[in-house]
Design a protein around this nucleic acid. Structure first.
Lengths: 242, 242
DNA sequence: GCTCGTCTGTGCCCTTGCGCACAGAGTGTA
DNA sequence: TACACTCTGTGCGCAAGGGCACAGACGAGC
């Protein structure tokens, strides 16, 4: 039987929360609480994964780095997901890195335990595979959005994605940092953020963003944000899953 | 026991070829041979999938269409893969469409048979999940490439990807068609293709491309092409898989 | 206070690629 | 042969965004 405290802590990750109680109890011994600092690297490109992480208050970006050093983000993972799908997909490594963009906590589960449970429990497997599809949706939308939409819209999308995964209206990150995610120049982010600030959607000051008008951001963002959100809801939280 | 003819036909798809013989025999009754015309739609965005397809000589593009009608490709699938991962991931639909970009054949397998076999056979499941990771790699690389690389390089990448999946140096597709995949204007493709033609890599004439200098294309493409190729080889064909 | 380092704002020039318009060049068909 | 249609080439103006340089603004530490 899970203590109320443990249950409360563990279900701050929505994937874990979606699991049946007896499953959670079985998983608990394999889960370790960890914390990530801003910018901390969970794994490097090509590095063998030793564990997966279920973020609770942290947010993790899947980042690609090109040979010339330019970078772009392919996906963003918070308490709605899990970092390290390659472990149960069977590849064990991926050609991208994972970086914490919001400092905070997560639950860590080592490779063996994960693979064992994946093979053993149908509900666990089903949930993880559905999550994989949600992740694919997010990545493919990023592919299209990166191609077709302006920096300003993509910035809105990124802010909303991050805001969704954080329990606050304040984010701590520099424009330089964001430009690495968006795959653009820092100056372009400055200009775009300036416009969002001018129309009163956000406030920006030295690595400290405040979301002032969330609805306004939702109005300024491209369709990509909603498509991914709706599809994720459908895949993970809608039907009688778990 | 598979007839030599059936075995030969079925293993034109590399995923199927990677399966153990007894598994193939079990699958055979569930497989139907189909053919796709150029431009044929395998499934529409949001449509419930009834089957997966293992292309043999056809090539299928996963295409995203925005509300304003603009389009971009997220992935390209040939005899090295399978169309319809959402079926075993559990989502049953995806927000993109699948379109044949090279006419040709495929093996079709209905949803029930697929799901049954996925649950029953570990080697089948392992192969499909590894393929899923390869697909994720391809899509994420597209996301980054779309953001950071020029039309010309992306055109090279697309030509190489397609060429890899086709047993010929001639491709039948208009520049208009390709521009839909690249998410660019037709005129931009004209210019880029013109340059590739000038330096003797390809020949272009009214919906009829000839790859003249494959090595040259590999020299002109961005790193994205090779990263995906190497990673796919590692995931699917390298180790003792199957 | 002062200084240093970091973060943000801005301006200028340049390239890429889009929007649009239209001209030619093949191809198919009557 | 004539006509219609499709596909490709090209030119021009324009907007977005990259490269670079530098100025200001803020905060931390002394």
């Amino acid at each position: 039987m899970l203590s109320a405290e443990a249950f409360d802590a563990i279900t701050r990750n929505q994937l874990l929360r979606a699991l049946p109680q007896e499953e959670l109890e079985r998983l608990l011994p394999s889960l370790t609480r960890v914390a990530f600092a801003l910018g901390e690297v969970l794994y490097e490109s090509g590095q063998r994964l030793e564990y997966v992480c279920f973020p609770t208050t942290s947010v993790v970006s899947l980042l690609y780095t090109m040979e010339d050093g330019s970078t772009a983000e392919m996906g963003l993972i918070g308490n709605d997901g899990l970092v390290g799908v390659a472990l149960f997909l069977g590849g064990n490594t991926t050609p991208n890195r994972a970086v914490a963009v919001v400092a905070g906590g997560a639950w860590r589960m080592n490779a063996n335990a994960l693979q064992q449970e994946f093979a053993r429990s149908e509900s666990f497997q089903r949930l993880l595979l559905r999550y994989t599809q949600a992740l694919i949706t997010q990545i493919s939308q990023a592919a299209v959005c990166n191609r077709l939409h302006s920096i300003e819209k993509r910035l809105c999308r990124w802010l909303l994605l991050t805001h969704d995964r954080v329990n606050a209206n304040e984010l701590f990150m520099t424009q330089e940092f964001i430009s690495n995610m968006l795959g653009s120049r820092r100056e372009s982010v400055t200009v775009a953020a300036g416009r969002l600030q001018d129309i009163g959607l956000i406030n920006y000051a030295r690595g400290h963003i405040t979301i002032i008008d969330r609805k306004g951001l939702e109005g300024a963002v491209c369709e990509c944000y909603r498509i991914v959100k709706d599809e994720t809801d459908r895949l993970l939280w809608a039907s009688g899953e778990g």
